[in-house]
């Protein structure tokens, strides 16, 4: 069943045409779209709604008839089915083939106290009579007066738009913004200073050379660079047995 949404609100704009013949309900496109295309477009929506209804009733039946074998995963499965169907429905409603239903007027043609078999059939037995008692529930485009009243009450509780108060709040916001921007500025300045400092540090030339290290270690361990190539005149300086040096003197001192 469609929930009629009247674009202009206000119950007064719902016009009644009790003298018109035909079915209990009639729709007329506010956007002047041809009625046939509207009905065609509504078919997939109705189909989807049927499916959702079936799924929900299936779930209810399952819960009611097999309370002992209820299992959480099964229920979650069914819920996910229903939710995907709902998503599908909203996709269809939003698609271009469906005319914008918000802009349509729904007008009851006939209000009567007698049973309407056509209506009963369309609504699957839920609404046998479109009476004065029922139709406000189905054609309402505003909230019930009671609900509306409660909303009003809630609105009254909101503090009135006090100019002084809002000025104060604005001032505080401005102050906070000032403080925050000053902080951000000083932080970024510090960051810049730090970065330039470290960049300057990295510019200092290397204090050591890997090649030199390796050359020195090789010289120490293998004598590379220290041994003259064979054949040269001063290869292998030969130490005489009487090599003068600390050793001799040290032993003499003992």
């Amino acid at each position: 069943m469609l929930r009629p949404q009247h674009p202009h609100g206000g119950a007064g704009s719902v016009s009644l045409h009790p003298n018109l013949t035909g079915g209990g309900l009639g729709t007329t496109a506010g956007s002047r779209a041809p009625q046939t295309s509207l009905v065609d477009g509504l078919d997939p929506v109705a189909e989807n709604l049927q499916k959702i209804k079936a799924a929900i009733s299936g779930l209810l039946q399952y819960i009611e008839t097999q309370p002992d074998s209820l299992s959480w995963p099964t229920i979650m499965d069914r819920f996910s089915t229903i939710s995907s169907q709902l998503a599908n429905l909203s996709k269809i409603v939003k698609s271009e083939r469906i005319p914008d239903m918000r802009r349509m007027d729904v007008i009851p043609f006939l209000v009567s106290a007698e049973t309407d078999p056509g209506l009963e059939k369309t609504t699957e037995g839920r609404i046998p009579v479109m009476s004065h008692d029922k139709f406000p529930d189905y054609f309402r485009s505003k909230m019930e007066p009671e609900v509306e009243h409660r909303f009003q009450e809630a609105y009254y509780k909101v503090p009135p738009n006090n100019a002084e108060l809002s000025q104060k709040a604005d001032k505080q916001v401005q102050n906070l913004n000032k403080v925050v921007s000053a902080l951000v500025e000083s932080l970024s300045a510090a960051k810049e200073a730090w970065e330039s400092k470290t960049a300057g540090l990295s510019k200092i030339p290397l204090t050591h050379d890997v090649n030199d290290t390796n050359a020195l270690l090789l010289a120490m361990t293998t004598g590379k660079g220290l041994i003259s190539p064979p054949g040269s005149s001063n290869a292998y300086p030969k130490y005489q047995p009487g090599f003068p040096g600390a050793g001799g003197q040290a032993s003499q001192n003992r």
Binding site: A246, G247, Q249
Partner: peptide
């Protein structure tokens, strides 16, 4: 190894 700086040091 020996020290060149100090001749009193042993080998």
């Amino acid at each position: 190894v020996r020290s060149i700086m100090s001749t009193f040091m042993p080998w």
